[in-house]
Design a protein around this nucleic acid. Structure first.
Lengths: 258, 258
DNA sequence: CAACATTGTGCGTGTTCATGCATGATTCGG
DNA sequence: CCGAATCATGCATGAACACGCACAATGTTG
């Protein structure tokens, strides 16, 4: 029996019984308990189960996706490169709505200091990320705070958002696909995004390579409405080519220092 | 049995019974009381229970307010009387938005059968309460369901709501005061209510006696915007008199059979 | 083909953990 | 204020554990 095969069988038992015992598994698969423990350790570090004394438990509740400030630390170089590339398209004097998202957070942190930009956001993390400078005043839209998306959502936020007419919307995308368009994980988030799209003059999306070609459950807007997509050179592939045919202005971000 | 498993079982008993006894648990799980005490200590430090002499109590953080269908059973005769009085003001052919609330639920259940009324609501309970009749078509507005208020709230709901122009809004009021106006317990609920008020032609509020003169945290609309208030004869008092001076049409509901 | 790297496994060793018991302190109820 | 119940703490014990090492099977390179 292959190791991966055995681990898959353990995962099956986990979902079926909610727990597994190390000794039990060792007997069932005719391997030593050490091997089982190694399996469980591996699976736990991959987030497939919770390791406890005597065995392992199935991951209870929803596997909590890392909050925004943690997402910001993964693939940080790529996101900084995206932000640097996107920053070139922020025109002096514009009112820019920055949607929630880790790539957008990077943009907020490295706004070009040589241009005046009025920043509006419904994400507290982004509001905090903008370095305090007189040329970059920040307006934070409030509402019911949702830790998952890292933004304020709900009816109150929507009411505030619809009063805005930003020159540029830096839209966050949980998924970006030529056919499915921009999609989001949360229905409330998607509703806010849709409203933002309607009221914004121009739209720009920052998307790391792994977002391209992926689809999240809730539709926001088609790609044809997005004027500019900033992504990585590493993203080239079928999904990238399909996006290029939609007419959007695609900007490739290289390493920062280029 | 795994330690964590046992603690989960204890947590289950806690939520079910509200309390647990150390000796009882020791017998049930066939471990020493020391082990149970260790469990309870651990759980208490994790905030899962409150440690007391002899056992532990469930964390009484949020006292769960009774859901809508339970609130409907308290003061039911008064609410039915309000509903009967309010029903007289539903004009044939009107589109009526019925806001969430137990008094409004009573109204939905006893709509006058001799008039055609297009019912719109964002409360599933109210949609279900309307007896299925061809002259009373029901439109349910969706969104994120909130069990506390018994209605759909959030950005999606607001988006749908603002497309409506109902002839009459039967507004729910958590508090009704001559000075503070109509107020609500939930900010999201209040935001939806405000939008409904803006788009409705006429507004009617059903308020039991105990609502009069009370104030909830979130402002919805001043009393001057409410065209008709239906309340109980038993409500007469200072708060009632103050309301009368605002110019609203005050309707007193008597016992049903009068 | 031979030498080498990689991987999965089992075993030995020392460590950590869960548990029950003993002990003395604390709390409760009368 | 006293006895009984309950508790926290320390300790002993055995089970479960992580780690390092050896070995075999397999794949890789020269």
């Amino acid at each position: 029996m292959l190791t991966r095969e055995r681990q898959a069988a353990i995962a099956l038992r986990l979902t079926r019984d909610g727990k597994v015992l190390a000794g039990e598994l060792a007997a069932a698969f005719e391997v030593s308990e050490d091997t089982i423990r190694r399996d469980l350790r591996e699976m736990a570090s991959a987030g497939l189960c919770e390791r406890v004394y005597g065995g392992a438990l199935a991951r209870t509740s929803a596997p909590p996706p890392p909050p925004l400030h943690e997402r910001a630390t993964i693939a940080a170089p790529q996101k900084n490169a995206l932000a640097a590339a996107a920053a070139r398209y922020l025109v002096d004097g514009a009112t820019v709505f920055i949607d929630a998202g880790s790539a957008n957070l990077a943009l907020a942190a490295r706004l070009p200091t040589d241009r005046r930009l009025r920043i509006v956001t419904h994400s507290p993390a982004i509001a905090l990320a903008v370095p305090p400078r007189p040329q970059h005043p920040v307006t934070l839209i409030g509402g019911r705070y949702d830790a998952e998306t890292g933004a304020c959502l709900g009816a109150e936020t929507l009411t505030e958002v619809e009063r805005l007419r930003p020159d540029l919307l830096v839209l966050g995308a949980c998924g970006l696909d030529a056919v499915a368009g921009v999609t989001a994980f949360d229905p409330e988030d998607a509703a806010i995004k849709r409203r933002l799209v309607r009221s914004s003059v121009a739209i720009m999306v920052l998307a790391t390579a792994e977002k391209l070609g992926t689809v999240a459950p809730f539709f926001v807007v088609g790609v044809e409405a997005v004027g500019r997509i900033v992504t990585e050179a590493a993203a080239k592939g079928p999904a990238f080519d399909a996006l290029g045919e939609t007419g959007a202005d695609i900007v490739l971000a290289g390493p920062i220092g280029r």
